[in-house]
Design a protein around this nucleic acid. Sequence first.
DNA 1: CAAATTTAATAAACGGTGTTCAGTTTTATA
DNA 2: TATAAAACTGAACACCGTTTATTAAATTTG
Lengths: 214, 214
Amino acid sequence: MIMGVKERKERDKLEMRDKILKSAHKLFLEKGFDQISLRSIAEAIEYSPATIYLYFKDKNEIFHALHQQGFGMLNQAFQPLTLIANPFERLNEMGKAYIQFATTNPEVYDLLFIRTEPMQHVATCMDDHWTEGDRAFEVLVQTVKGCQQEGYFVGLDTQNMAMMIWSFIHGLCALGISKHISHVKEARDKQMVIDDIMNNTYRTFQAMLERLKN
Amino acid sequence: MIMGVKERKERDKLEMRDKILKSAHKLFLEKGFDQISLRSIAEAIEYSPATIYLYFKDKNEIFHALHQQGFGMLNQAFQPLTLIANPFERLNEMGKAYIQFATTNPEVYDLLFIRTEPMQHVATCMDDHWTEGDRAFEVLVQTVKGCQQEGYFVGLDTQNMAMMIWSFIHGLCALGISKHISHVKEARDKQMVIDDIMNNTYRTFQAMLERLKN
DNA sequence: CAAATTTAATAAACGGTGTTCAGTTTTATA
DNA sequence: TATAAAACTGAACACCGTTTATTAAATTTG
């Protein structure tokens, strides 16, 4: 028995998983969520479709893996914001960063917070515990708590307040991405108009929060 | 040429359309959006799949028709609220009714405001004008305007304020429906916990709006 | 009424999908 | 080198939305 064989095999296994995910990610960005097929992934990595099932339980597990990768991207976008000491300012910047992320990576946002397929995998395999979501939400809760210590949102429950803020931001992003913002007077550069609406709406939200001091 | 033949034929055509839509709606409620297939609709109405194409351009047109029906349901749910004279109270009740609608008809809500398929049909065939959406939003705008005349949200743009409110409510409903509310401590009756979170979050939003008088 | 014409319906096919499984090929061990 | 184990795949299964050529029915015309 040669030493290190098992180790190498494990490495190969991970490499293959990575190869599959990279192809899936590429197809996902190039052609969109609906256009990812196991067959197209298989073709891209030059293996038979059946091979993929040796590395992933099913398609949803692939989506879940991409979902986790997407969360990595989101966390990275939030990383610099931890440096902002003032909690209310940090909250505002978090909102901006969130919207920025959603509008520049609509497909990824869709995968993270709108599509149900990855969450289905969470529900069936991860004992229904969405670690990434919990962690991200906790960051928001802590920031809200910080704001309250500075005199914002006093008398309002921290959890509810955080949930309220997330709901608003998510709703704004979801509507912006899913083509449901239609009350757009001009039809010149649609995307730019939608971006404007999103920014204006967020500014109004900000203005509202600012009035909630004392 | 016998008179009334053309009329009867037109009636038959509409009846068939209705038959198809009724079956689609039933399948939709019973098995969910993803489980509607033209073949299953065809089987339900006891016609061949190809026949459906004599009455609908493609699957998206069926979705769009269901989408319009769903809007009818939503409007009906909002009907009684027009009687409420006080605009701020009306606004609150509108929010409640909206959430109520979304939680009791999650599939329909999904179709109306989350899924992109019906909107795709709007974009390609209806000159990109989403009449139902525009009308519904205008009702919200008028209510917000009423609130402003009573001293609420002064100095904030009416359109932006309406958009802000819709974003929040939509975000809350979207998260509640799409299984993305996971920071749930107990796992006893999950749906009830989610409903509680939604209600608490909405109450917090209400409380916030109330502080925006004068 | 019979023939011609329009309309309605469909069987069959096309090219796709996710997934399974019986085999084959490759690799590692004894 | 024979054997056991692991990796891989071709082919099938059961679906899907959509199109087309063909048949059956209804209608109009002579």
